[in-house]
């Protein structure tokens, strides 16, 4: 599904990703953990095509297609989805309009018939229910005045509607209360399928109690320094990242 090889990327002349490799197969759930400032969000931005992030080396393929030359919207239409750590507020553009524009664009690119307004509304209502957001939120400006937790749930709502192939969740669990954490986890679990993969960035083992990852990676200083199974998350929870300085542990994507 996703093949990242020896990726180097910089922002404002500062190299953040320094030879990152990662391989995610269809149906797999990978978790990425790592200290603040390691480059986790940067990875999401680079993969999703945010402007200002320049790739200096390496490659990234989604389903065998090189995505690094694509525009952000083309990558989304190719099935990549990033749930943001800090979702943006867009006053004046309603949530429903935003969802409709996204669905329309993606379906057009995929060459399928657009959904009718009624169909979209029906889907959106169901998605609201699933993430426990009142349907009135569809009328409000995108994330406008939403609480931190509501913004995160709104990201999951978009994921449910857009049905991407590869979902990157950047700290979708941060700032959530216990119930919301379960809502997010259930949202992800409901979407797990043999042809959909997840890359979950988190600082806390807790989310991984609900979403069982197949692999856990440690990202530090711009590359994966350690990989393992779910037990690695428990280990990190116990020991922290102090060991990073002691042994320069070479990691490899699964």
């Amino acid at each position: 599904m996703l093949k990242v090889k020896d990726l180097y990327a910089s922002v404002e002349d500062k190299t953040i990703l320094k030879g990152l490799s990662l391989n995610i197969k269809a149906g797999e759930v990978h978790a990425i953990m790592g200290p603040n400032g390691a480059g986790k969000s940067t990875l999401g931005y680079v993969l999703s095509g945010r402007e200002g992030y320049s790739v200096e080396g390496g490659s990234a393929e989604l389903d065998g297609k090189d995505i690094l030359d694509m525009e952000a919207d083309e990558r989304a239409c190719a099935g990549l989805f990033l749930a943001f750590q800090y979702p943006v507020e867009i006053p004046g553009v309603s949530n429903l309009e935003f969802l409709k524009a996204s669905l329309d664009a993606q379906r057009k690119m995929q060459g399928v018939e657009p959904l009718t307004a009624t169909e979209i509304l029906k889907m959106a209502r169901a998605a609201c229910k699933q993430v426990h957001l009142p349907i009135e939120f569809l009328k409000r400006g995108v994330n406008e005045g939403f609480s931190g937790g509501e913004k995160k749930r709104n990201e999951i709502l978009q994921m449910l509607m857009l049905q991407p192939k590869l979902c990157i969740l950047d700290e979708s669990d941060s700032g959530l209360d216990i119930d919301a954490l379960q809502v997010v986890a259930e949202g992800v679990n409901s979407q797990r399928s043999p042809d959909r993969s997840f890359l979950i960035v988190t600082h806390y083992q807790r989310l991984l109690d609900y979403i069982k990852p197949d692999f856990v990676h440690v990202l530090a200083d711009g590359k994966i320094v350690k990989s393992g199974g779910p037990e690695l998350a428990l280990e990190l929870e116990e020991n922290g990242y102090g060991w990073l300085n002691d042994n320069a542990c070479e990691g490899q994507g699964a």
């Binding site: 525009e71 919207d73 989805f81 943006v88 524009a101």
Partner: peptide, 13 residues
């Protein structure tokens, strides 16, 4: 930022 957010959902620039 808002442009990128929309683009990241598939809407062209």
């Amino acid at each position: 930022q808002a442009l990128y957010y929309l683009q990241s959902r598939g809407v062209d620039r």
